[in-house]
Structures are given as structure tokens and as C-alpha cells.
């Protein structure tokens, strides 16, 4: 089939690793149906991002720069990607299923009148036909989907595809000519959640807290445990709604989808919508004082206990382990 384009995510010039899963998905499609995988970097002064991408095994990196791309906007991105797709005849476009990809990719679908499969977890070949797998109903069903038309558009669930390796042999970076049309939108400001911790979607260990944590100041306890484990911190919707945790900590159907090696749920009941975001974690620990809590159905190690008693004990044990 025709060649494939991956749209690279970065935050003000800082490369986002979720792009690497989109590269893997694009390569999976190329493996099934042929075609070469290229990457597109849009921004202003983002040659460093293009340089990182050039080491990920793509055929080449297209670099579209201009002051109008300095801040991400759905309209400028969707418009520029549409130009590149039309000019070069790409047959498929991939982006991460982050709030970045979920924002501009449907707009691209509308601009190109092209079918989009969101949040895909698999690509298969059935005879000559492409079959796409994607979770539906909060992950309670995996749909097999067929796309009709061209180009085919995909946003990729990061946890479902192993990231492409970085730091390989450098492939060419080419300038792409793109124009930006902000179409009545303008960037105003960004309020970054500051954290020294690993990113939720990249962390090996996540400690998550829910309504059972009861107050914002009790997140100190969660942080202490996370410190011992070099973990990222997550939260249930209830904890975010209460204002105890920032919105981008929310794990679940409508928040972040995570699959760390170890997920520790503290005072989280395990609603369907929360499970949708974490049930593919390798090992799940749940601490909840209600032995009937549904979170225990997915936990490998369930502990019925008061978290305010159990967590300090865990912290003490971990400190002991470290000094041993």
C-alpha cells in the first residue's frame, strides 16, 4: 500500500515517547500491507525533536516549521497534516491516542473525509483486508473494525504497542512546506502540572488514590509511598473531582490509560470506568477496607485494610528493604 505517516507529539519541543508506540503500530501496518513509514514534526525551532525521530527507524522525518506552529492548535495541525498527506499521497496516518491525537486527528478526518479508528490496540490481516482492534464500552468489549476509504487514520493506544527503539542509525530529515491556518482559534495559556516524578504513562510503578484518601493533605502519604517506589501518582475521578489531584492524574476510561509493571490502588472502589484505565497492568495491588470492593476482582494482591494503617507500614518495610 501507499506510504504511512506518523505525526510526532512533543510539548514545546520536548519529544513525547508515546509517539514511539504510534511508530510501532505504523510499522505493524507496513509489515502487513507494505509501504514505508515516515514521521512529521510540526513546530517552531524543533529540529531537536526531528533529530530524535530520525533515530527511531522511520524512512525519513519531515520537518514543518513556522511561528504559527509554535503552540499546538488543532486547526493548524490538522490543516498542515492534510497538506502533507495530499502532497505526498500518504495512505495512512498514525498519531498517539493522547489528548493531542484525540484532538486533531478527528479534525483531520473531517477535512479529508477519511475514516478514523480511535485508540487502536491491534492491526490484523484477514485475507486481503485490514482488521483493526479497538476497545469499546470502557474496555468491556474489543471491537473488530473495518475502515473504508483513504487515507486510513488511526490513534494508537500507547500501552498496546511496544515502543519503537530510539537512538538507532539516523535517517534523513527533510524540510516540509506547510502553511498554518488557525481558523479562529488562538493559544492563550497553559497550566502545567509540575512534577519531578515519572510520567503516568511511562512509569514502571504507579500509586493511585481514590476517595478513600479523604483529603488533599493525605496525598502526602501517597507521595511518600511513591517516593520509595520511584512511582508516578494517579487518581480516580472521585479524587480529581474533589480537587485533591490535578485532572491529568485521572486514570480510567476518560482519563489516562496505563499499564505499569505495578499498580497500587489505595481507597479506590474499582468502578468500571476506573478499571478501564488500569486493568492491563502487570501486577495490581489493591488496599481497601471494604472486602466487597470490585477492585479486588482484578487485583493480584488484595489487602482488606485501612489504608492509613497499611501505607505507613508499607513505607517502613520499603525503607527496611532499601537499607538491607
Amino acid at each position: 500500500m501507499a506510504d504511512i505517516l506518523v505525526v510526532v507529539e512533543h510539548q514545546d519541543g520536548v519529544f513525547k515517547k508515546n509517539t514511539l508506540s504510534a511508530v510501532s503500530a505504523a510499522k505493524a501496518l507496513a509489515g502487513l500491507f507494505g509501504g514505508e513509514v515516515d514521521a512529521l514534526v510540526l513546530g517552531d525551532g524543533v529540529a531537536a525533536v526531528a533529530d530524535v525521530m530520525a533515530g527511531t527507524g522511520v524512512r525519513k522525518v519531515l520537518l514543518g516549521e513556522g511561528a504559527a506552529f509554535a503552540k499546538y492548535l488543532a486547526a493548524t495541525y490538522a490543516g498542515a497534516v492534510a497538506q502533507v498527506v495530499k502532497a505526498k499521497g500518504y495512505g495512512a496516518v498514525f498519531a498517539p491516542a493522547s489528548t493531542f491525537g484525540k484532538d486533531f486527528m478527528p479534525r483531520l478526518s473531517g477535512l479529508l473525509d477519511a475514516p478514523l479508528a480511535s485508540d487502536i490496540v491491534g492491526l490484523e490481516k484477514d485475507g486481503d483486508a485490514l482488521r483493526v482492534k479497538r476497545p469499546m464500552y470502557a474496555g468491556n468489549a474489543i471491537g473488530t473494525v473495518e475502515l473504508v476509504g483513504s487515507p486510513l487514520l488511526f490513534t494508537v493506544r500507547q500501552t498496546a504497542f511496544n515502543p519503537a527503539a530510539m537512538g538507532g542509525e539516523k535517517t534523513p530529515v527533510e524540510k516540509a512546506t506547510v502553511t498554518a491556518e488557525a481558523g479562529g482559534t488562538a493559544f492563550v495559556s497553559r497550566q502545567e502540572t509540575k512534577s519531578e516524578r515519572p510520567e503516568l504513562t511511562e512509569a514502571r510503578v504507579i500509586v493511585s488514590a481514590g476517595r478513600g484518601i479523604k483529603a488533599q493533605e493525605n496525598f502526602k502519604l501517597v507521595e511518600e509511598l511513591a517516593d520509595q517506589l520511584n512511582a508516578a501518582i494517579g487518581a480516580s475521578r472521585a479524587a480529581v473531582d474533589a480537587g485533591w489531584a490535578p485532572n491529568d492524574w485521572q486514570v480510567g476510561q476518560t482519563g489516562k490509560i496505563v499499564a505499569p509493571v505495578l499498580y497500587i490502588a489505595l481507597g479506590i472502589s474499582g468502578a468500571i470506568q476506573h478499571l478501564a484505565g488500569m486493568k492491563d497492568s502487570k501486577v495490581i495491588v489493591a488496599i481497601n477496607k471494604d472486602e466487597e470492593a470490585p477492585i479486588f476482582q482484578v487485583a493480584d494482591y488484595g489487602l482488606v485494610a485501612d489504608l492509613f494503617k497499611a501505607v505507613p507500614e508499607m513505607i517502613a518495610e520499603l525503607k527496611k528493604l532499601k537499607s538491607a
Binding site: 477519511a114 475514516p115 478514523l116 479508528a117 482488521r131 476497545p135 469499546m136 474496555g139 468491556n140 468489549a141 474489543i142 471491537g143 473488530t144 473494525v145 473495518e146 475502515l147 473504508v148 476509504g149 486493568k279 495490581i284 479486588f296 476482582q297 482484578v298 487485583a299 493480584d300 488484595g302
Partner: peptide
């Protein structure tokens, strides 16, 4: 243009 052909349950997790 996007057709859902079938649904299947996700892999079951052996928790508990």
C-alpha cells in the same frame, strides 16, 4: 466508513 464487524470480550484477568 468505519464498520464495527464484531465484538469480543477482552482477555480475562485472573484477579481475586
Amino acid at each position: 466508513r468505519v464498520k464495527v464487524l464484531s465484538l469480543a470480550p477482552p482477555p480475562l484477568r485472573a484477579g481475586g
